[in-house]
Design a binder for these strands. Structure first.
Length: 931
DNA sequence: GGACTGCATGGGA
DNA sequence: ATCCCATGCAGTC
């Protein structure tokens, strides 16, 4: 390498001063160094006297008169680097341009497709398009003192903790000196460097620097080879060629994807020397900022555009590897404009991150990518970290705690207290938060990008990149779904599934292969707006599917060994004679047709495919459903509330469309499709508490409801514990009629539902009785003693024990009539429940419901219920086989139907107690025979 | 019991 | 093999 290149390299270094110290003969000099009085140009032996270009250090190269003149006239390289390597031809005019030194940086720009263009051509040819790929660049102000000041003050002011020590983990720096080449120096980093605090890394850095121009000037493999072939420029061929080419290919690939790279680009260097080209020019803005300014303020000098082009990221693969691509900022002008607000401010994009479920969750902790945190956030040495003031895109300021946790000999950086901000910006998992810095204030700015917009833009990008509009990863094979719009039936919009396809493409590019869990979740939760249940409903076994049953923790899972097919979503119901059927909507006429239960339909189905009902095999045939029936049939979407009726008590559940694991009502009940907000559930629980003393079966029914409610409450996400049910499934879940549908069951009903319920109930009761009786003998005495004391001391009325459970005279009466004379039991029955009732449990496995395996509350409730029930049984058996007295006394109407306790699940805003003839009831008969 | 905190774990790059 | 980081979870308040 020629000495001229060496001098250039030294100039490229941010450590010109240090380099000078190490190599006085390299004639690198700066105004701040008086070790050498020679001209910066090693080719020149004259003594320096004039300032030249600006160095990274903020100082100016000292040049002799001759060199300074050549520099000012733009002839420096032509004069002094004639024989140096790095001469390239402009792709446009062919003019030879030297690309091998800091002096020439402003003279050319790298082309996206490879090669270079001289600035004259660049200014003529380039149209500044919205290119989110512009890198955030270190703003090297012509006022280094101001920046130096800012470099410390900005963070320290933000942190409010005085001067910030040098970052504790400059891994970007120390691990490989890459930053010296490419990483934008943070102002404080420059300070540090200026202060000569990194001498230890100097030799390595210097070595890196020596090969940097070779990489740098050969902006593309093509040009590199071209240079070799056409120019016979052997000067740049060295042992590193293969690696260089490989590296450069990576660069090109990165560029092709329009990736923004938060590392220094040569434009940064250009900016530094720009001042030297014409020191009278206004302070150069960072290229990115220039573009931004150019966007905001028309009429910016076209030269700026060319300079901006010169800011194209030229990133070394090693530099790229420092920060994972998924964190590279991809700001659009609009986003910048949104963030900035103030056109006089300069936005420096730092990084971005897609919010994970944890990030967006209520915990309020945003995990920061380590490298980003260490590169762009103030250094912290203590886990407690620092408070960090961050401004959101609306200008609102937030203070987060920037801290870290020790983790595997490393650190895990988090921003704490982000929940208000996240909520304020209405962000959720999958959305992207962006971090940038506002210059010159140094203020951290947090922007965001919603997942939908991100997906669209990314998708657009990718489409344009591939040029064929076809997903590169083959996800398009999902194909457009023929399903029509989402409506009350729960059908999924065609557009939505198409969006899914596009989202998957985006995810594959944006997220890479990272975090499948996140990807799936995002798709489902955010993009698809597809509930777990809906997704389940879409799946059909393959035509020749033979399910294999896997039992996990007592739950049977049907496994699709072959990939399930996407089928036509249908609605299962009971006809008026109690047979299970399914309803399907014609793709064309949208009429609903009744089909046999086990029919599996293709994803696109029309009336013409109705081979089971020839009279309705045409769209012209009338729909055999009244609007009212249809309304009852269709699962209600966007429910506000679910009412669960128990005798005269109506319990309201607020719901969301979330599938509930272990829901005994599976896919049919409204509750099952919903979660219950804790507030309302508590209210409901209170109601249940109020009525729980009605009797054993009533209580059990309540427990069933509440157990489910607990499930609802406890589960914000579906689990795999819910077996997949499909047509023909005969489990307790599936044999139940849809909520609010089907005939009511008499006590003497011997249908599958009742039989199963009775059997399970009886088994449960017997086991509970047996277990409890063993313990009762020992504990009852003590309990009675204590209760007796309590009764004597407090309240002679047993019902008072229920506390708030005295809301109605009926209840009081019920309590007194069916009262359990054990107040502790009453108390326990009002205790919170943790457990769940899963009607899918196998009776032979019900001992898993032992208190030991239960959290306690639920089992106590069950025990109470069983005891009461058995006591009632004994009581009633002596009085004839009749319904429990409690129900006689409580039920205000239709007592016979509600005898034994009924769970009626009404739909949204439906009053099943009044006019819902098809309200679903589970009748647990008091005369249930043991099985 | 729920919220919060800090660390541990394990999948994935 | 190593590191990152999303998330789980136990301890504490």
């Amino acid at each position: 390498m020629s000495s001229s290149s060496c001098s250039s390299l030294a100039a490229t270094s941010t450590t010109a001063t240090a380099t000078n110290n190490n190599n006085n003969t390299s004639c690198c000099s700066s105004s701040s160094t008086v070790l050498s009085r020679k001209c910066f140009n090693s080719e020149c032996t004259d003594f320096k006297s004039r300032k030249g270009w600006r160095l990274r250090s903020g100082d100016f190269a000292d040049l002799c008169d001759r060199c300074a003149s050549a520099h000012e006239e733009g002839r420096f390289c032509e004069t002094f680097h004639v024989n140096a390597s790095g001469w390239r031809g402009c792709e446009s005019c062919g003019k030879r341009v030297h690309c091998g030194c800091i002096v020439s940086l402003q003279a050319f720009t790298l082309l996206d497709a490879g090669g270079i263009a001289c600035m004259a051509c660049a200014r003529k040819s380039f149209v500044l398009t919205s290119n989110p790929a512009w890198p955030p660049l270190f703003y090297h102000s012509p006022f280094p003192e101001r920046l130096k000041d800012l470099s410390v003050k900005s963070w320290s002011q933000l942190a409010g903790s005085g001067p910030v020590p040098w970052r504790q983990a400059p891994s970007l720096f120390n691990s490989s000196a890459t930053q010296s080449e490419l990483q934008p120096r943070m102002p404080y980093e420059v300070d540090r460097l200026n202060a000569g605090e990194r001498f230890s890394a100097l030799s390595l850095e210097k070595r890196k620097l020596e090969d940097f121009p070779e990489r740098f000037i050969n902006g593309s493999p093509r040009n590199h080879l071209q240079d070799i072939v056409e120019n016979g420029n052997a000067g740049i061929i060295d042992d590193e060629q293969p690696q260089m080419l490989s590296s450069l290919r990576e660069d090109i690939s990165a560029q092709q994807f329009g990736i923004t790279i938060p590392y220094a680009s040569p434009s940064e260097l250009k900016d530094q020397i720009e001042g030297s080209v014409n020191p009278l020019l206004p302070a150069p803005l960072p290229p990115f900022a220039k573009r931004f300014h150019g966007t905001l303020h028309k009429g910016v000098d076209s030269s700026v555009d060319g300079q901006i082009r010169n800011g194209r990221p030229r990133i070394d693969a090693r530099g790229k590897s420092q920060l994972l691509p998924r964190y590279w900022p991809r700001f659009t002008d609009e986003e910048l404009q949104q963030i900035s607000g103030n056109p006089n401010s300069v936005i420096k994009p730092l990084f971005e991150k897609m919010l994970s479920a944890s990030d967006a969750g209520r915990i309020g902790r945003l995990v920061l990518p380590k490298k980003c945190a260490e590169a762009y956030f103030p250094p912290i040495s203590q886990p407690e970290g620092l408070p960090l003031r961050v401004q959101d895109s609306k200008g609102k300021e937030w203070i987060f705690q920037f801290r870290f946790w020790p983790n595997n000999n490393s650190r895990m950086y988090v921003l704490e207290g982000v929940t208000p901000c996240i909520q304020n910006m209405q962000l959720q998992a999958g959305d992207i938060v962006t971090f940038s810095r506002l210059e010159p204030e140094g203020k951290l700015v947090m922007g965001f990008r919603k997942a939908s917009s991100a997906s669209l833009s990314d998708q657009d990008n990718e489409t344009s990149q591939t040029g064929d509009g076809v997903s590169a990863n083959g996800d398009a094979e999902l194909g457009p779904s023929p399903w029509s719009k989402v409506d009350k039936s729960g059908y999924i919009a065609k557009e939505v599934l198409e969006a899914k396809s596009s989202i998957k493409k985006r995810k594959s590019s944006t997220l890479g292969s990272k975090s499948k869990r996140l990807r799936i979740e995002n798709e489902d939760m955010i993009e698809l707006k597809l509930t777990w249940e809906e997704a389940q409903g879409l799946l059909r076994p393959a035509p020749d599917h033979v399910p294999s049953i896997v039992v996990i923790e007592g739950f049977e899972f049907e496994e699709y060994e072959d990939a399930p097919v996407l089928g036509k979503p249908t609605i299962f119901a009971m006809d008026n004679v109690g047979h299970k059927i399914q309803w399907v909507q014609c793709e064309d006429c949208l009429k609903w047709r009744k089909l046999p239960l086990n029919v599996l339909l293709p994803s696109k189905w029309t009336c013409s495919g109705n081979t089971w009902d020839s009279e309705r095999s045409s769209c012209s045939a009338a729909q055999d459903l009244t609007p009212e029936q249809l309304e009852n049939l269709l699962p209600s979407r966007n429910l506000d509330a679910v009412y669960v009726y128990f005798n005269d008590f109506k319990m309201e559940f607020l719901v969301q469309n979330v599938m509930i694991p272990n829901c005994p009502f599976c896919t049919w009940c409204y509750v099952c499709e919903s979660t219950v907000t804790s507030k309302r559930l508590k209210a409901a629980k209170k109601d249940i508490d109020n009525v729980e003393a009605l009797g054993g079966l009533d209580t059990l029914a309540n427990l069933a409801i509440l157990g489910e409610g607990e499930t609802l409450l406890a589960s914000s996400q579906a689990t795999t514990k819910h077996p997949r049910h499909r047509p023909g499934c005969s489990c307790i879940v599936c044999i139940q009629p849809p909520s609010g549908k089907g005939p009511k069951h008499k006590q003497t009903c011997t249908c599958n539902v009742c039989q199963t319920v009775k059997r399970r109930f009886k088994t449960l009761m017997m086991k509970r009785e047996k277990k409890q009786s063993e313990k009762e003998a020992e504990t009852t005495r003590k309990q009675q003693e204590s209760s007796a004391e309590k009764l004597l001391d407090d309240d002679p009325s047993p019902s008072s024990n229920a506390g708030s459970a005295s809301g109605s005279p009926n209840k009081k009466k019920a309590v007194s009539e069916v009262s359990d004379d054990d107040p502790n039991r009453m108390k326990s029955s009002t205790s919170p429940f943790k457990g769940q009732i899963d009607l899918n449990i196998q009776p032979e496995r019900e001992d898993e419901f032992s208190p030991g395996s239960d959290s306690g509350g639920m089992m106590r409730m069950l025990q109470d219920a069983s005891e009461r029930y058995l006591r009632m049984q004994r009581f009633l058996s002596s009085d004839g086989d009749s319904i429990p007295a409690s129900n006689h006394s409580v039920s205000s109407g239709g007592a016979d139907e509600k005898a034994g306790g009924g769970i009626m699940l009404g739909g949204s805003h439906q009053d099943a107690s009044e006019d819902h003839p098809s309200a679903f009831s589970i009748i647990t008969s008091a005369s249930t025979p043991a099985t």
